[in-house]
């Protein structure tokens, strides 16, 4: 018996030592690669990975930010799915919101980037600036509050009433039926952001000789050219845009809270992130907020895997 264990141990030790020497050899052989990556990797791990890991661990604790966290296992998650009815509303809203703003915003970025790219450089720069304006000008989306004001001086109410379509103003941002659709419209309006710029950069990176070759091969119109040449040659950027759309549509709250109020009427514009903010910065239940963040994270990862599969079909 004893000898067997020692033999097994020796085997394990040998295995480990073998692994470490191999790892050491790998590092030595790829020294330049690791040196290039090291500055980024160290900073990224310290200021991004570490906080994320700590947050995931905190999701298994009760933590009010003043006292030490207390380990409570899966309790936050059980509470989240079994007894938090507001969370279920938030999930439903986020799902509706993301299902519309994600794909539509993504396609809008792509469409406008492609369209702008049809023009000569100076015109292109001008239109790029116009479309990017809502993202560059801070909280300019508050202009929409004037449009959707609840009295007859709000632009939309004024328009409807002067056209004789309505006799009394609608309280757009206080009516649970309209809050979420309005948030969706405003979000779409400001969706030409990061992905839009990256798509334009991607379009400019495409080798122009591909288009000439395509024309010879019988590409008849710009739509065929888009599908068979342009999109396949910017697949990396398409994936980048998809990730951006997923993160911004699932984690939206920055524009929703000022528009719809916090908490919004009847939780009509409650999203997962505003639910998280409620627990994190109002009720000081950080452990619970971390559990919400972890669930949201998993939902995004699953969506990303599905989208990745869809995007691999582009140009086929």
């Amino acid at each position: 018996m004893d000898t067997q264990i020692t033999v097994e141990n020796q085997g394990l030790m040998y295995n480990l030592r073998h692994r470490f020497t191999r790892l050491g050899r790998d590092i030595a052989r790829n020294k330049t690669s690791y040196l290039f990556l090291a500055p980024y990797a160290i900073i990224f791990i310290t200021f991004t990975v570490l906080p994320v890991l700590v947050s995931i661990i905190l999701s298994f604790t009760h933590y009010n930010m003043l006292e030490k966290p207390v380990w409570i296992g899966w309790q936050n998650y059980l509470k989240l799915f079994l007894s938090d009815d507001v969370f279920l509303i938030a999930v439903k809203n986020t799902f509706v919101f993301a299902a519309i703003t994600g794909p539509v915003g993504y396609l809008a970025c792509l469409f406008f980037a492609w369209m702008v790219n049809e023009f000569k450089p100076k015109i292109r720069a001008f239109f790029t600036l116009l479309f990017y304006a809502p993202s560059i000008s801070g909280n300019a989306f508050l202009v929409w509050q004037i449009i959707f004001d609840a009295d007859q001086y709000g632009y939309l109410n004024g328009l409807l009433m002067s056209l004789g379509l309505r006799d009394d103003p609608i309280a757009w941002l206080y009516d649970p039926r309209f809050i979420l659709p309005i948030c969706i419209i405003v979000t779409l309006w400001m969706s030409l952001g990061t992905s839009f710029l990256v798509f334009i950069a991607g379009l400019q990176n495409i080798d122009p000789s591909l288009y000439e070759a395509g024309a010879i091969d019988g590409v008849r119109n710009r739509w065929q050219e888009l599908w068979y040449i342009t999109l396949p040659s910017m697949k990396p950027q398409l994936m980048f845009g998809a990730i951006m759309s997923i993160t911004s549509s699932f984690a939206a709250s920055a524009q929703i809270i000022p528009l719809a109020g916090f908490p919004s009427v009847d939780y009509a514009a409650r999203t997962v992130v505003s639910h998280l903010l409620d627990y994190g910065s109002v009720r000081f239940e950080m452990g619970y907020a971390c559990a919400i963040a972890t669930v949201l994270f998993l939902a995004m990862v699953i969506t990303q895997k599905i989208v990745q599969r869809l995007l691999s079909k582009v140009g086929e």
């Binding site: 790892l23 790998d26 790829n30 690669s33 690791y34 990556l37 990797a41 990224f44 991004t48 990975v49 570490l50 906080p51 994320v52 700590v54 947050s55 905190l58 930010m65 990730i243 997923i246 993160t247 699932f250 984690a251 992130v273 998280l276 903010l277 994190g280 910065s281 950080m286 907020a289 971390c290 919400i292 963040a293 949201l296 994270f297 995004m300 990862v301 990303q304």
Partner: peptide, 25 residues
């Protein structure tokens, strides 16, 4: 080099974690 796939996957995943809760860590 070993670890490169893992690292780039980690960067993509990190984009999807809500920054609101990482403020305290």
């Amino acid at each position: 080099f070993p670890g490169k796939r893992f690292f780039s996957e980690m960067v993509v995943l990190s984009l999807m974690f809500a920054a609101e809760v990482t403020a305290i860590p």
